[in-house]
Design a binder for these strands. Structure first.
Lengths: 154, 154
DNA sequence: GGTGAAAACTAGTCGGC
DNA sequence: GCCGACTAGTTTTCACC
C-alpha cells in the first residue's frame, strides 16, 4: 500500500468523479438499494461500489439515510417564512431562542433587509400567535404565510 | 377477516398511531434499517412491521427512501431567498419560468408583502447575476443572500 | 398481530488482474 | 482501483396459530 502525502490526501478528500455522482444520484432516488443492485445500475461490481459508498460516508458527503414523508397527510400545518429585524444585538440569546422553539424549522442568517429568515411550522393559528408574541421579545418581524409551495427534488 | 364499510376505510387511510409514528421516526433516522431491526427497535415482530411500512408507502405517507448529502462539500454554492413582486399578473408565465430555471430550488406562494418567495442556489456570482436579470422580466425582487443556516431535522 | 422455517438475498473477503 | 467467485450470515416471505 502506497503512503500518501498530506496534499494528495486533502485533494482526495472531496474527489468527485462521475461514478460517485451516479452513486449519489441513485441512492438519492432510492437509499434502500443493496450494494449489488446499486452496482448493477452503474455498471460496476458490488465490492467496488461498496468501497466507494463507504468513503462517501467517511468523508461526510453522505450524512444520512432517511425517508421522505408527506407531512401534510399526517397533520396539516401552517407554514410561514418570518423575516426578523433584531431589536438589539443580542444575537446569542436570539439563537438560543431559535434552538428552543420547536416551531422554528430553519433559521437563515441573511444579508439584505432582515437579519434572519425563519421557516416555521405550526399546527394552528393559536400556536402561531403564541409564537409570534414570544418572538417579539427579541425582534420585530414580517410574517409571510405560505399558501402553496413547489419544491424541486435534489 | 371482517369486511369494512366505506367510512371506516377512509378513516383508516391516514390513521396514525404511536407505533406508526415510531416507525416513521426510526426510518427517518436510518432508512436502511432491515425490517427486523426496525421491528426490534419498536418492540414488534418483523412481519407486523413490514405490513405497516407497506401501508405507509401505499398511503403515500412515506414518499421515498433517500440520502442526505452535504452539498457544500461537493460544490460550494451561494444560497439566497428572493422575494418577488410581480410586475403584472401573468402568474402562469412566471410559474413556467420557475419550472424552467434550475437555479430555483423552491417556490413559495406567500401572503404578505411579496408575491412569491424563491429559494435559489447558484454556483457563483455570475450565474446569480444572469438569473436576476432573467427574473426582472417578470418581477421586481428583493435579494437575501444566505450567510449561515441552521436546519433542524424533522 | 405472532411464530418458525424455507428460500432468497446480502455484505464482506479473497486472489488475481 | 476493479473484478469474479465464494462464504457465512441475514433478510424476506410464507403458511399457520
Amino acid at each position: 500500500m502506497k503512503s500518501k502525502g498530506i496534499l494528495s490526501q486533502q485533494l482526495e478528500l472531496y474527489f468527485m468523479d462521475n461514478i460517485n455522482k451516479a452513486i449519489l444520484l441513485e441512492l438519492q432516488r432510492n437509499s434502500r438499494l443493496s450494494m449489488r443492485k446499486l452496482a448493477a445500475l452503474i455498471h460496476m461490481t458490488a465490492p467496488a461500489v461498496t468501497e466507494r459508498v463507504r468513503r462517501l460516508e467517511e468523508q461526510g458527503i453522505i450524512t444520512g439515510y432517511t425517508i421522505r414523508i408527506d407531512q401534510q397527510k399526517i397533520n396539516p400545518i401552517i407554514e410561514a417564512y418570518v423575516e426578523t429585524f433584531m431589536k438589539s444585538s443580542h444575537h446569542q440569546e436570539f439563537l438560543k431562542f431559535v434552538q428552543a422553539q420547536k416551531e422554528i424549522r430553519e433559521c437563515h442568517r441573511i444579508s439584505g433587509n432582515a437579519c434572519y429568515l425563519l421557516k416555521i411550522e405550526v399546527p394552528d393559528q393559536g400556536t402561531l400567535n403564541t409564537f409570534l408574541e414570544a418572538l417579539l421579545t427579541y425582534a420585530n418581524y414580517r410574517l409571510n404565510i405560505v399558501i402553496a409551495s413547489t419544491v424541486k427534488d435534489a
